[in-house]
């Protein structure tokens, strides 16, 4: 395996709910994310997967343990860890092109560099034709493409995605998942994706971190060996592979165990 770029070491998170009440969201989680890999955080709702992702982004601080990126401990948000949210985050007052240039602009890239990088990433996500439109004129899937292009154009070490396609309809979601495989292959971007969608997890993941709920603990690390170390570019092909249904069944069983424990 390649070098790890992110190390999550014995990370716990306790939320203070006020009046002396506390909520343990995450408990003693450790795992590594390898460079250029796609790592999926999967688990039932309440397993703290979003909290883990937000701690990687620096938007939350671990109560104990540490997160290390490229040898440096994470201390607050930074451009090395770009994040995509489930909710739309386009800046409505800027054109699609200006949205994609936003990160580069605030980080001081020259206008010419911004322009050419924006062209490149708009092309990568298939939005070249809509460069001068406003986000409010676009569909939900296209707005997420804007967010993806904007984050990638800012050249992060890791792309963090929090249920990025959760608000999209099914066929748009497939297209977006296939787009992410394409992007990962073309840009060698390391991705950490949070989802509760089994199919999405199997399709995208080089490695699945399965979390159990209440509090969120590491249950199992699963490598979908049936893909033979490759990424499959479209959904129709992956479901035909030997081992796909076994993998799906295994994840379903894990999900169900967690669900039962909650009742």
């Amino acid at each position: 395996m390649a070098d790890s770029i992110l190390k999550i070491q014995q990370v716990s998170k306790v939320f203070d709910l006020g009046r002396g009440r506390q909520l343990q969201a995450v408990q003693g989680i450790s795992f590594d994310v390898e460079k250029n890999s796609i790592c999926v955080l999967l688990g039932p709702s309440g397993c703290g997967k979003s909290t883990v992702l937000r701690m990687m982004a620096g938007l939350e601080t671990p109560t104990s343990g540490q997160i290390v990126i490229g040898g440096q401990e994470v201390d607050g948000p930074g451009r090395d860890r770009g994040m995509i949210f489930q909710a739309y985050t386009s800046f409505d007052w800027l054109s699609v092109r200006k949205n994609v240039e936003f990160g580069m602009k605030i980080n001081g890239l020259s206008a010419a560099d911004r322009r050419s990088r924006a062209e490149h990433f708009l092309d990568l996500v298939g939005l070249t034709k809509f460069a001068d439109a406003y986000p409010s004129q676009l569909s939900g899937g296209m707005r997420q493409r804007v967010a993806i292009a904007r984050t990638l154009a800012n050249d992060p070490e890791v792309l963090l995605m929090d249920e990025p396609f959760g608000a999209l309809d099914a066929e748009t979601r497939w297209l977006m998942q296939e787009l992410m495989i394409d992007v990962a292959e073309k840009t060698n971007t390391t991705m950490v994706i949070v989802t509760h969608d089994l199919e999405e997890a199997i399709f995208l993941a080089d490695k699945i971190i399965f979390l159990s709920s209440h509090p969120g603990k590491l249950k199992e690390i699963i490598v979908p060996e049936f893909k033979g170390g490759k990424r499959i570019p479209d959904k129709e092909h992956i479901i035909k592979l030997n081992g796909y249904s076994d993998m799906e069944e295994k994840l379903m069983r894990l999900m169900r165990e967690e669900g039962r424990r909650d009742e």
């Binding site: 620096g58 938007l59 930074g78 451009r79 770009g82 994040m83 949210f85 990160g103 980080n107």
Partner: peptide, 10 residues
């Protein structure tokens, strides 16, 4: 989310 997006863009 708009503020957090900006934060993670640096």
């Amino acid at each position: 989310e708009l503020i957090e997006t900006a934060l993670t863009l640096g």
